[in-house]
């Protein structure tokens, strides 16, 4: 089963990586919205959390554990800060930016 499964998963990994670029572009777009329009920042950050949620759900199974773990951490960070007025949104931006720049490592 293992060899057959690995062969079956290979094209899915390729599609995941292609989709990852689109998902990163979506995060980037929402990050820009959040930075430029503070009144839309809450929603933009929730959009980012939703994209990170999807990355975190599949990355580990496809062998990108580090990427998935980081996506989950940032998703949780955004959700914890959501609605908390004492936290500046701008504190989250460098963290999200670093995620976008994070080199991809397969495990």
């Amino acid at each position: 089963m293992q060899a057959g499964l690995a062969a079956n998963l290979e094209p899915i990994r390729a599609r995941f990586l292609k989709l990852l670029q689109e998902r990163k572009a979506e995060i980037q777009h929402n990050l820009e919205v959040a930075a430029e329009a503070p009144d839309q920042a809450d929603q933009a950050l929730l959009n980012i959390a939703a994209v990170l949620h999807k990355i975190a759900g599949t990355a580990g199974t496809l062998g990108f554990e580090q990427l998935g773990t980081r996506a989950r951490e940032i998703e949780n960070l955004i959700l914890e800060h959501n609605g908390d007025q004492s936290v500046q949104h701008s504190e989250l931006y460098p963290v999200i930016n670093a995620f976008l720049d994070q080199p991809l490592q397969a495990t």
Partner: peptide, 16 residues
């Protein structure tokens, strides 16, 4: 709602 998950599951079940 994530097509990648559905693809993984399909690929996985195909081997059984």
């Amino acid at each position: 709602d994530d097509p990648i998950i559905l693809e993984i599951l399909s690929a996985f079940v195909e081997t059984m």
